[in-house]
Simulated scan of single mutants.
Amino acid sequence: MADFLGMMKQAAELQSKMKALQEELDHVEVEGLAGGGLVSVRMTAKMDVKAVKIDASLMKPEEREIVEDLVVTALGDAKRKAEAAMQEKMSALTGGLKLPPGFGLG
């Protein structure tokens, strides 16, 4: 029974740490770049887009499709970086224990 109580205590501690991690992820920001930095996207590790910046040199009607492609690329870059930041934080919390996708996130 002592083992079970110890496991319950560990589970409660992990739940508390997960909640703190969720709050921390709101403040971790990454920047995705495309076109050699002509387009940048800033987002949180929870994938909330905070800003999109487009260099003035791209603001020509004939460059519209290029700009659209660069925004998509920058968003993808930021998403990969956000996922990596979240994975790094989760790994630190769980001591490298692999948790099922979405466990405790949301």
Rank of each mutant, 00 (worst) to 15 (best):
32 G>R: 00
4 F>A: 12
99 L>S: 07
20 A>L: 09
85 A>I: 10
45 A>V: 03
41 V>I: 14
50 K>G: 06
79 K>I: 10
31 E>Y: 01
32 G>Q: 06
74 A>G: 02
13 E>M: 12
1 M>R: 09
78 A>G: 05
65 E>Q: 14
84 A>I: 02
35 G>T: 09
70 L>Y: 03
72 V>T: 14
44 T>P: 00
14 L>V: 02
23 E>G: 11
88 E>C: 00
84 A>L: 13
79 K>R: 12
44 T>N: 09
53 K>C: 04
34 A>N: 05
6 G>E: 15
21 L>H: 11
93 L>Y: 12
15 Q>Y: 08
51 A>H: 08
71 V>A: 02
7 M>F: 05
29 E>P: 02
72 V>N: 11
23 E>L: 06
52 V>H: 04
27 H>F: 01
36 G>T: 10
17 K>I: 01
39 V>D: 01
103 F>K: 05
100 P>T: 00
96 G>N: 09
38 L>H: 12
77 D>A: 13
98 K>D: 15
83 E>H: 05
48 D>G: 08
55 D>N: 09
78 A>N: 06
87 Q>W: 07
3 D>Y: 07
58 L>T: 13
49 V>L: 00
105 L>C: 09
104 G>A: 08
58 L>A: 12
68 E>W: 02
81 K>W: 10
52 V>C: 05
99 L>K: 01
82 A>Q: 07
55 D>M: 01
41 V>H: 09
39 V>M: 00
42 R>L: 11
89 K>N: 10
16 S>K: 09
28 V>Y: 13
80 R>S: 11
2 A>S: 15
32 G>V: 12
2 A>M: 11
11 A>Q: 09
13 E>I: 07
26 D>A: 13
97 L>S: 08
35 G>D: 03
64 R>F: 05
69 D>C: 06
8 M>A: 14
7 M>K: 10
9 K>G: 11
8 M>K: 00
71 V>R: 02
96 G>D: 10
10 Q>V: 12
85 A>W: 08
75 L>Q: 02
40 S>K: 10
39 V>W: 02
46 K>V: 14
42 R>M: 02
56 A>M: 10
73 T>F: 02
85 A>M: 06
66 I>L: 13
63 E>D: 12
3 D>A: 15
65 E>V: 08
80 R>W: 08
86 M>F: 13
57 S>V: 15
93 L>C: 12
44 T>D: 14
37 G>P: 00
73 T>Y: 04
35 G>A: 12
74 A>E: 04
16 S>F: 04
69 D>N: 06
97 L>C: 02
